[in-house]
Simulated assay, not measured.
Amino acid sequence: MTPAIQAEKLFVSYGKLQVLRGISFTIPADQGVVLLGANGCGKSTLMRSLNGLEKLQSGTIRIHGDALSGASRSELRKIRQGMGYVFQHFNLVPQLNAFQNVLFGSLGRQRFGLLSCLGITASAADREKAMHCLDRVGMADRALHRPSELSGGQQQRVAIARMLMQDPRVVIADEPIASLDPKAGREVLDLLWRIVREEKLSMLCTLHQLDLAQEYGDRVIGMKAGHIAIDSPASDTNKEQLNTLYTGMTRVDAQPTEVAA
């Protein structure tokens, strides 16, 4: 089966500072992976590289077999349409209600663009699907509420519904509970992982909580100073091993390296 994400020998540099130093990993279809690492280790650069927002110095990224490098604008747009995103800061449009924010998940395939996402020209099928997505995350009764009327956990649920509206095959979740209190954070992770498994999606999720990484992830990938230091099933990891990701030389600027040719 074609892997959901395949990264081979990724190098990214900013001037003489080498941020990704030969990163390689493969995520099979239907696997939920947690990415760990201290601030400054290169996680954010890796996450941006996975959808083509960060230019690789060298290496190859394939999403379900489609290479990002060399892809035309239309090809890249098609690849991105198969990827759903959940962010730390929710990124909901404050002037719109929850239902309209979920409709934004269909923006890439809408003929009338923004008008469709506002619900003005959205098809009956898309409107029904948006409500179904809200129901999946327990927010159907808040469909007409604006983000300011929702708690942080509720806003993240709407963001997950918006992601579902995209019909993704791969989910990129970048610290999805960093802005939430522990109770709301656990509820969001319960929901996110349940949906990923029910829909048979693949996910790469960055977290900082080691206990949650072990509890939820099928697998843990740990980064340190631009390298992969750990890559193993979550059940085979222990706290002492994971703590090494946050001790010693952790930042990409801690070990100056010449830029690869």
Rank of each mutant, 00 (worst) to 15 (best):
L245M: 04
R146G: 08
A4G: 09
A184L: 11
V102C: 00
I195T: 05
G70V: 06
S123H: 13
D135L: 10
S72F: 11
M165W: 02
K183N: 12
L36W: 06
Q155Y: 00
E199I: 00
G119F: 08
V137K: 13
E54S: 15
L107T: 06
T206S: 15
S44P: 00
V34A: 15
R169V: 07
A254N: 15
G222M: 07
R162L: 06
A254F: 14
D190F: 00
M223K: 02
L76T: 10
V171N: 07
L50F: 04
S24P: 06
R80I: 07
A122M: 01
T244S: 15
N101G: 11
E240I: 09
L103K: 01
S202F: 13
S13L: 02
V137L: 14
D174G: 10
R21K: 15
S202Q: 14
I120C: 02
T121S: 09
D126W: 04
I79G: 12
Q88I: 03
P28L: 02
E198V: 08
E187F: 08
T244Q: 15
M139Q: 03
I177W: 10
I228Y: 00
A173V: 02
K9W: 05
T2W: 04
R142Q: 12
R186A: 11
R251A: 14
L68S: 01
H208V: 08
Y14E: 14
L118P: 03
T2I: 13
D181C: 04
Q57S: 13
K55S: 15
N39K: 13
A130N: 01
G152L: 06
R21N: 14
A130K: 01
L35Y: 05
S72M: 11
L212V: 12
V102D: 01
A225S: 03
E75T: 10
Q241V: 04
R219I: 06
A7E: 07
M1D: 15
D167A: 09
S106I: 07
E258M: 10
L114Q: 10
A260N: 12
R219P: 11
Q154S: 09
V188L: 09
G248Q: 04
N101P: 03
L150N: 11
T237G: 05
E240P: 01
I27C: 03
Q88G: 06
S106Q: 14
P233E: 09
S49V: 10
H132R: 10
D190S: 11
G70W: 06
L96Y: 13
G138T: 07
M203S: 13
N238E: 15
K200Y: 11
R80V: 05
M165L: 05
I228H: 00
F90L: 05
Q255A: 05
V137M: 15
A159N: 05
T26R: 01
L180S: 12
